[in-house]
Design a protein around this nucleic acid. Structure first.
Lengths: 345, 345
DNA sequence: ATGAAAGCGCTAACAT
DNA sequence: ATGTTAGCGCTTTCAT
């Protein structure tokens, strides 16, 4: 059952292909009777306009590329879901690629996509790219006329739309919460110290302590490599013994859960004499015991926002191009069982 | 910076477009000197053959569609990763779509993809589709000449390649493990009773009991709706009180974790007098306390296998079409801390 | 109301 | 060694 083309239909009715094309597009030029019979025939025989032909003609593919560092990360999966939702609503397809945190893979992917496969790109850059601090592959694409919207891990020096979370404020608020519920010896556990978002959370932590008039004790800042996750407990155990710590802010769920386990093993009662807040997207947090209080990131909303922004830009007439914009999605503290309730006045 | 076409290059050197085309494809027909200058120029100016033009010409897009019921499910994310990996290696792009377990969305997606956007499709069907037992949308696509590879949730009545896990054996082995470590009152908690894979696990459970000469007690079969996950503990608590249960096999992680919490609350020691095994993909299992012993499903391998199979089929010459095949990926029991170690003789 | 023709970017069979 | 032409499936301008 070969797929039907406009030509086949034209042959079938012994009319020209342009008549068929117009009939299918409901042109006023075509008589009602021919329109009807052609449309009927097309429908019955499951005619679908060829995607590549139309894309070639229109110089538009109605598809957007998304590059994600790691699909097993729940946050990114949420973002993806948000992107998919609005893309779908607006009639766009998504070509999705995983960079695996690799600069080379990211570059190759960008290469591969920038041949007319897609109209625009949504991405969060690979860790390696952020470390390398080399963003020329991004500007190349943008200069070729393909808009990029970056989210979460964004390159400040690149002029494009961006969607980020207010990581800084999230950390400030976390400190405030812990302080106002009676904790003063608040440790900061970071698995993201080499990423900008990690730095922002760190700065928020420092600022938060300042706001609460708590002296900064750098001994309580614990940086761990992210891929060590099986080792988190071993790394934290001696530290929790040596230092006087009664609360933790962690940049991710895994290390927060490790911190809780170690604290419990040391005889602490959570949340009464030891509290934990983690930056998180929620899947582990909702299943840990006790359930984790989190600085929640609204990944789906970030994805939806990025997609809306990109599609707006794509569908805007050339003339009315707007400035690039950075949209900040706010974070919320979701109170669960690893912190004492906070009653703000 | 408009994108360069073959025509632009031809103009620049005042040669014909076919000369350029041949030069870029390194044809023997073209003199070395012209080939060199044209290739150099193309490279310097970042020429890339237009994707849609080539796809139109070749009637091949080198892209595959993947339809996944739910991207927030770790198992599906793993499958996706596996697909992405081999697709990427073989030079294929991926258009990914989420069905959200909806029959309508799945049908629309299939519609949208079957217009020449993709060469083949990998999918796991929506729960609604499985319940509805209506697979005509799949056969339509296949009849149009677009191959489908189904994974995990497959339609038996459809003639296409399939990749599944040996859910039945997984359950048999889980029962065996629990029985051989001293448990006789083994409950079966299912959140998937309306899916075929849920039925297979159930049957495996029954068979496993039979193998171990344990009488089947239907009181110990507990079916829960999947979307109730916040309620799992409440649902299980009275059951665990009324019935004499010393072990659990769960069809998913969340309910297994709930079961552990309830058991612990009832004063059971895990794994000594209460053991738990869950069908799972690993993310929660590795973070729960105690860590969950699982029947592990190798999602990435399933995805990779599905992609290999599809691409093989796509690249095979028409003549040598093979029969459809169902590939079974074996499951493994990964022992963690929710079961006693099993020393098989 | 219908059709012819050009063109989107590229390849390939067929001249020259 | 290089060029001409037709065609992939479709839209659109310009005849008729």
């Amino acid at each position: 059952m070969k797929r039907l083309t406009i030509k086949d239909i034209a042959n079938h009715f012994s009319v020209s292909i342009s008549t068929v094309s117009k009939a299918l597009n409901d042109s006023y030029e075509i008589s009602v009777s021919t329109k009807e019979k052609i449309q009927k025939y097309a429908k019955e025989n499951n005619y679908k306009p060829n995607f590549n032909a139309i894309s070639l003609k229109n110089r538009k593919t109605k598809t957007i590329g998304i590059i994600i560092p790691n699909m097993l990360n729940y946050f990114f999966a949420q973002v993806f879901k948000g992107v998919e939702k609005v893309a779908n609503e607006k009639g766009y397809k998504i070509i999705s690629c995983i960079s695996n945190e690799s600069y080379d893979k990211e570059t190759e992917t960008l290469e591969m996509l920038s041949n007319g496969s897609i109209d625009g790109i949504i991405l969060s850059m690979a860790e390696e790219t952020e470390l390398k601090n080399d963003f020329t592959h991004f500007s190349t694409i943008i200069n070729e006329g393909t808009p990029i919207v970056m989210f979460d891990r964004v390159a400040n020096s690149i002029d494009c739309d961006k969607v980020i979370a207010n990581d800084f404020d999230g950390a400030v608020n976390a400190v405030k919460h812990l302080s106002r519920t009676g904790h003063k010896n608040i440790a900061f556990i970071s698995t993201l110290s080499n990423l900008n978002i990690g730095r922002l959370r760190h700065q928020g932590y420092v600022k938060g302590l300042e706001n609460e008039n708590i002296a900064l004790n750098t001994d309580l800042i614990i940086n761990i490599k992210e891929d060590d996750y099986k080792e988190y407990e071993n790394i934290l155990t001696p530290i929790f013994t040596e230092k006087n710590i009664d609360a933790v802010i962690a940049t991710d769920e895994s290390s927060a859960i490790a911190a809780m386990k170690v604290a419990i093993r040391k005889g602490h009662k959570i949340p009464d004499d030891f509290s934990v807040i983690a930056f998180s997207n929620g899947i582990l947090a909702r299943h840990s015991s006790p359930k984790l209080t989190t600085v929640s990131q609204h990944g789906e909303q970030m994805g939806a926002t990025a997609a809306e922004r990109l599609i707006d830009k794509l569908e805007l007439a050339e003339e009315e191009k707007q400035e690039s914009e950075t949209i900040v999605i706010k974070t919320d503290i979701v109170e669960r069982k690893s912190t004492k309730p906070l009653f703000l006045n």
